[in-house]
Computed example of a mutant assay.
Amino acid sequence: MNLALFDLDNTLLDGDSDHAWGQFLCDQGIVDAAEYKARNDAFYEQYKAGTLDIDAFLEFVLAPLAGKPREELQALHDRFMNDVIFGMVNPLGQELVRWHIDQGDLCAVVTATHAFITAPIVRYFYHVPHLIATIPALENGLFTGKPRGIPAFRAGKIARVEAWLESMALDFSSFDKSWFYSDSSNDIPLLERVSEPVAVDPCPALRLRAESLGWPIISLRGRDEDGAGEGIILHA
Rank of each mutant, 00 (worst) to 15 (best):
D171K: 03
D187K: 09
D176H: 14
W179P: 13
I158Q: 14
F180P: 06
A163F: 00
A115Y: 01
I158H: 10
K146A: 11
P151T: 11
F153S: 11
P189S: 13
Y181S: 06
L131M: 04
F125M: 12
A163D: 01
L142M: 10
I121L: 12
D171A: 07
W164M: 02
S174C: 09
V128Y: 15
Y126I: 08
D171S: 13
H127P: 06
I135D: 01
R193E: 02
P147R: 15
F153K: 09
F180H: 06
S174G: 09
P136I: 00
T134H: 11
S182E: 04
F175R: 11
L131N: 04
I135R: 13
W179Q: 11
H130V: 10
R154A: 09
P136D: 00
E166G: 07
Y124W: 06
V128K: 08
H127W: 12
F143L: 00
V128S: 07
G156E: 11
T118G: 08
F116V: 04
R193F: 00
I135A: 00
P197I: 01
F143W: 07
L170D: 10
I132R: 04
P120N: 09
E166V: 03
N140Y: 10
A163P: 00
A155Y: 14
A169R: 14
G145V: 11
R123S: 11
D183V: 03
L190S: 08
A115G: 14
W164R: 01
H114V: 05
H130N: 15
G145S: 08
P120M: 08
T113C: 04
N140A: 13
D176L: 09
D176R: 13
Y181A: 07
Y126A: 06
S184Y: 10
R154T: 08
L138W: 04
A152M: 07
T118C: 13
G141M: 01
I188G: 09
V194S: 03
L165N: 03
H114P: 10
K146V: 02
L191W: 13
A152Q: 11
V161A: 03
S173F: 01
V161Y: 02
R123K: 14
Y124L: 15
A169V: 13
L191M: 15
D171G: 13
D176I: 07
P189A: 12
G156L: 03
A119V: 02
D176Q: 12
G149T: 04
E166S: 14
D183M: 11
F116L: 04
I188Q: 12
V122E: 14
N186R: 10
F172D: 10
S167K: 10
A119N: 15
F175D: 03
I135S: 00
V128W: 14
E192G: 08
E196P: 07
D187Q: 09
T134K: 11
K177E: 15
S174F: 02
P129A: 07
S195R: 13
I188Y: 05
H130D: 12
P120Q: 12
G145T: 11
P151H: 07
A108V: 07
Y181D: 09
I135F: 00
D187T: 05
A169L: 06
W164K: 02
A155P: 01
W179C: 08
I117F: 07
S174V: 08
P197Y: 06
L170V: 13
H130A: 11
A155H: 14
W164Y: 02
L191Y: 13
R148M: 12
F153T: 13
S184W: 04
G145W: 02
D176S: 12
A133Y: 00
A119C: 03
A159K: 12
D183H: 12
K157S: 08
S178D: 06
P147L: 01
T118F: 05
